[in-house]
Design a protein around this nucleic acid. Structure first.
Lengths: 152, 152
DNA sequence: TGGGAACATTTGGGCGTCAATGGGATACGA
DNA sequence: TCGTATCCCATTGACGCCCAAATGTTCCCA
């Protein structure tokens, strides 16, 4: 598999490190991603991580024709000022910086959530909350499309 | 037969493994499905499993042209964050991960339920409950037992 | 029609490998 | 020089891979 799927929760050790799930590391290797770009999610209390092309994509939103694009100056402030490059240590771990902790409220555990072409870092509790909210909202409004448990 | 039909209940062994019914494995082989995509059912306490095209189908809902479709970010959280790829061991068994147990309340047995182009994993008791509920609901409009369900 | 052989399926368990985690030692920056 | 980050190695436990027992099914022949 060459996409980030599923989720896994790992502990933060005494030094503030946490192992990136092996499954995700495999995807990173397959995509030949050496350096990780990290930025806060604009909607959820989570940190988005992915390859450098992730930054490219955000930058395209700045200059792009997206009608919902934010103010350019404001957007740049978030993307360029709020993003950071990180890399894993020899065992595939990364440091939980204050930058990450601030936006996520992560304390002693991290839930890694696959998002297809990138993945996210969540506090386990908040992830479960938001996941449930999303589920509720889908069942409330989405009865038409593929609702009722039918998938086809 | 190249569709998933009927249902069967198998035991979970001490290691947390359970055999996928041979009948279902035959269908998988016939459809040349090597890797299974699994995701929680959005309505029932069950896990839906099928080939990779199952994920494609869900993803089409994300990028679909439905203007009232769910928020993309939220939908991805459910589909990508909540879905997993799994594969069977040499004997055709799969691991009952916490992921599966959480959504299904499966403890020591699993009921595999055919759903034509995919199948589901249920806790035997809950399956029987839901099946009975569905049956009752269907017969509610009609007469007694003998009465056939009226809503074709 | 009954018995049983041959086969298929389910279940159990040993063992090696790898991932997650912990911790000491060293390098680096404030 | 102290606090922090990085590198390296050790430990533990989970999972994959393999083989074997037990249970169930089919089919043939007496």
């Amino acid at each position: 598999m060459n996409r980030f799927l599923s989720n896994a929760t790992n502990k933060i050790d005494a030094k503030g490190r946490v192992s990136v799930p092996a499954q995700f590391r495999n995807v990173l290797a397959r995509l030949d991603i050496q350096e990780l770009y990290a930025i806060q999610d604009f909607v959820f209390p989570a940190i988005t991580m992915g390859g450098p092309e992730l930054l490219d994509r955000y930058e395209r939103q700045i200059v792009g024709d997206d009608p919902f694009a934010m103010d350019i100056n404001e957007m740049s402030l978030l993307i360029h000022g709020g993003g950071v490059f990180m890399k894993l240590d020899g065992e595939g771990r990364l440091m939980m910086s204050d930058f990450i902790r601030d936006y996520t409220k992560i304390s002693d555990q991290v839930t890694f959530v696959g998002r297809s072409d990138h993945f996210q870092l969540w506090d386990p509790v908040r992830y479960e909350e938001k996941r449930q909210e999303a589920l509720d909202r889908r069942m409330a409004g989405g009865q038409t499309r593929a609702g009722r448990g039918e998938t086809g």
